[in-house]
Measured scan of single mutants.
Amino acid sequence: VFVDDHLLEKVLELNAKGEKRLIKTWSRRSTIVPEMVGHTIAVYNGKQHVPVYITENMVGHKLGEFAP
C-alpha cells in the first residue's frame, strides 16, 4: 500500500496529539489507511483543495477518487 511519507507523518502526528484539523495535500495517489479515519483531508483536484472527510468505508481507496 502506498502513502506519501509527508502525509502519513502529518496524520500520525495529529493522532498522537489527539487533534483533528484540516490537512492539505497534493498527493491524490496516496491510499487511504485506517490511521486517517476521522480526519478531514483537503485533496487538490488541479484547481482547488476539496475537503474530504475520511470514513471507514474509504480505507483501501485512493484520495484522488474522492476529489473529482
Rank of each mutant, 00 (worst) to 15 (best):
G18W: 02
E19V: 11
I23G: 01
G18V: 02
A42K: 03
V3D: 04
R28H: 07
Y44M: 06
E9Y: 09
G18I: 02
L22N: 04
W26H: 15
A42N: 03
T40R: 08
L7R: 00
G46H: 13
R21D: 14
E35D: 10
S30T: 06
M58H: 15
D4Q: 04
W26E: 14
G60E: 08
N57P: 13
P68A: 11
F2Q: 06
R29G: 10
V43A: 03
K20C: 06
E19L: 11
V59D: 04
L63R: 00
N45C: 06
P34V: 15
A67K: 04
T25E: 00
H6G: 08
E65D: 07
I41P: 00
K62Q: 11
G38Q: 13
Q48L: 14
D4K: 02
V37H: 07
Q48F: 13
V11E: 00
L12K: 14
V3K: 03
V3E: 04
I23F: 03
G60T: 12
L14V: 02
L8V: 03
I54L: 11
N45D: 13
V3I: 11
V43I: 09
V50I: 15
L12N: 11
V3A: 03
L12S: 06
G18C: 07
L22A: 06
E19C: 10
L22T: 12
K47H: 13
P68C: 09
W26K: 15
S30C: 07
M36L: 05
D4P: 03
R29H: 13
L14G: 04
R29L: 13
Q48I: 13
V52G: 01
R21K: 14
H39D: 00
V52I: 13
E9L: 12
Y53L: 13
G38D: 12
E65M: 09
V1G: 14
G38T: 08
H6E: 14
V43R: 00
M36N: 00
K62F: 09
K10H: 14
G64K: 11
V1E: 13
I41V: 06
L63Y: 01
K24Q: 07
L63C: 03
A67V: 07
L12A: 08
A42R: 02
T31K: 05
I54T: 04
E13C: 10
K20D: 04
H39P: 00
T31H: 15
H61R: 12
L8Y: 12
T31Q: 12
